[in-house]
């Protein structure tokens, strides 16, 4: 595990060193002590690299159909993972699918996180009727299964990359709102806040200078744990025929197309599934590690 460490450390160190070398070093020395965290981190780095440099790595055009070469098994004719029912290279499609997953995961977590955090801060800081109204909305939404909610919204507003992100964000903001609200409520009772109030610091200043900075840790923990949920949800919905549409390669719609060939060509349903599992595993392992490290009180549930 430790052998893969120095490279990443060096690269990151060089870019950020002038500011805070100690924090980066601390991060990696913490990370190197947990092999699960390290594994998760490595998978995430690999995913990010694939999604950035995908177009230059793919051996073939992922959307180029070649009927003469359809359903080739893995390791034939220069196709590492074989070809699909239209003769497209599966390896190239999986690499480009990584980009779709990363975009959806990151974009959703940003939008849902931003909306949810703002709502959570408003509800928790101002209390009163606005808190009651906002939390009632959250309760109502949480009492409908997440995946079904996203599915119904996506089926109605329409498919495609943009609409699946919107659907996931509509389904996802409530978790952030609820968690951030309870964090704000807890912070309000802390001594450093009450003494601010006592010394006459303005409400806005308390909010911006003292409350918001203390929300970063719970936000990052929650975001890292939610990304995996969003990626799996997108794959499920694209598998059901909504979400990201072919020919754009997404792991979910690759499995949807592949399932018709399950009796003849096993590779169509195997590799995109492995990609989803590895991604979800990596993100979850890293998220768990992050939570245990940043918030030791929660360790071991």
């Amino acid at each position: 595990m430790a052998s893969s460490l120095p490279q990443g450390e060096q690269a990151l160190d060089q870019s950020v060193k002038p500011k805070q070398p100690s924090k980066i070093a601390e991060f990696f020395s913490n990370l190197s002590r947990s092999w699960t965290g390290m594994l998760g981190f490595s998978i995430i780095i690999l995913l990010v690299l694939l999604s950035i440099f995908g177009p230059w790595i793919t051996p073939y055009d992922p959307e180029h159909a070649e009927f003469g070469k359809k359903l080739l098994p893995p390791m034939t004719d220069g196709h590492l993972l074989g070809t699909d029912q239209l003769g497209r290279d599966i390896f190239s499609r999986i690499i480009m699918g990584a980009r779709v997953s990363v975009i959806i995961g990151v974009a959703t977590v940003c939008i849902a996180g931003l909306i949810g955090t703002i709502v959570g801060i408003i509800a928790g800081y101002f209390r009163g009727w606005i808190d009651i109204v906002l939390m009632r909305i959250v309760d109502v939404q949480l009492s409908f299964p997440f995946i079904l909610l996203v599915l119904v919204i996506n089926a109605i507003i329409g498919t495609g990359l943009r609409n699946i992100i919107i659907s996931l964000a509509i389904g996802g903001w409530v978790i952030f709102a609820r968690v951030i609200r309870s964090e704000v409520l807890a912070l309000r009772e802390k001594e450093f806040i009450t003494s601010c109030i006592a010394t006459g610091v303005s409400r806005l200043e308390i909010l911006v200078k003292h409350i918001v900075p203390n929300l970063f840790t719970p936000m990052i923990i929650l975001a890292s744990l939610q990304i995996g949920t969003y990626i799996i949800a997108e794959a499920s919905i694209s598998f059901l025929g909504f979400g990201v549409q072919p020919p754009t390669p997404a792991w979910g719609n690759m499995l949807n197309e592949g399932k018709d060939y399950i009796f003849s060509s096993w590779w169509l349903i195997t590799f995109p599934g492995i990609a989803i599992v590895l991604t979800a595993l990596g993100v979850n392992l890293f998220g768990d590690w992050l939570r245990d490290t940043l918030d030791p009180e929660l360790k071991g549930e």
Binding site: A235, S236, I269, G273, I276, N284
Partner: peptide, 15 residues
Amino acid sequence: TVVGQAVPSFWLGLL
């Protein structure tokens, strides 16, 4: 349990 949470049910069904 860690691996189980990463396997989407529809893929398990396909397998």
